[in-house]
Design a protein around this nucleic acid. Structure first.
Length: 112
DNA sequence: AGCATGACGATCT
DNA sequence: GAGATCGCCATGC
């Protein structure tokens, strides 16, 4: 897949504010890539460290973490979210912690 | 080209 | 909510 798509995904994820989370599908939609939720996960895995993309603020549409419960990655994600005040209950975040961006403002910042 | 594999998602039970 | 099923799309063998 093109770097262009990855770039858009990374830039979109960078817009998620601390203390909020978004789903893979939501990010795909906002990045102008509807139907490609799976590509978002892949892009996050390739994200350069230097860009400091908040990958831990992205999870599934059912509000559960994508990594196996108990795995090192899942534990790390849980810790990073907790540090921002996002508490997981039974591997799920609260509905209120889901990011609901102002579309006009977001599109302006991303200027697609 | 065919098939399996995912940091996924919507829908039904 | 949990589990099963099917759809989706990019990748790699």
């Amino acid at each position: 897949m093109s770097q262009q798509h990855y770039q858009r995904i990374w830039q979109t994820v960078l817009q998620i504010p601390a203390g909020k989370v978004a789903s893979y599908g939501q990010i795909a939609d906002l990045a102008g890539l509807p139907g490609r939720a799976r590509l978002v996960g892949k892009a996050l895995g390739y994200a350069p460290e230097q860009l400091a993309v908040p990958w831990f603020r992205v999870l599934r549409s059912d509000r559960s973490l994508a990594f196996a419960p108990g795995s090192d990655t899942a534990n790390l994600q849980r810790q990073l979210l907790l540090a921002e005040g996002v508490l997981l209950k039974n591997n799920r975040v609260q509905q209120q912690d889901i990011w609901q961006p102002d579309l006009a403002e977001l599109l302006f910042k991303l200027r697609y």
